[in-house]
């Protein structure tokens, strides 16, 4: 028996749709990691997960827990804040490191300073 929360029908529909939507968007982002060809192209798709994917799943979770009224929705808001603020920073640092390494090796793909 698969477990699921006890929700009224409207909430169940919202939660189901948003959870599926968020998971599919994250999967598309991760597929981009495989399907695109160069590193600089591959940096773009993983931003799908932390932006829209996370927002969708958090909306589902906010709906679920505010209907159940078991606890306030603080954690979701904090997670959303952390993820959307921190992922761009990590990606920027990583891309800068890649540019630095490519320039050091004299790779032709990256414009020189």
């Amino acid at each position: 028996m698969i477990q699921s929360p006890d929700l009224p029908l409207w909430a169940a529909i919202i939660v189901g749709i948003f959870v599926l939507l968020g998971a599919s968007i994250t999967l598309i982002g991760a597929l981009g990691l495989i399907r695109l060809n160069s590193f600089y192209e591959r940096v773009h798709p993983p931003t799908l997960g932390p932006t829209l994917g996370t927002i969708c799943i958090l909306v589902a979770s906010i709906t679920c827990f505010s209907t159940l009224q078991s606890r306030p929705i603080v954690h979701e808001l904090l997670i959303g804040l952390f993820v959307t603020m921190t992922t761009p920073v990590t990606l920027m640092l990583l891309a800068r490191a890649a540019v630095y390494r490519d320039r050091k090796e004299g790779s032709p793909d990256v414009p020189q300073e």
Binding site: Y40, H44, T51, T87, P88, L91, R96
Partner: peptide
């Protein structure tokens, strides 16, 4: 601006001169 552009999929901020 850097965070906004990197958070938007499709654009990536690399270096400010």
């Amino acid at each position: 601006l850097a965070v906004i552009m990197t958070a938007t999929p499709g654009t990536l901020w690399l270096q400010h001169d």
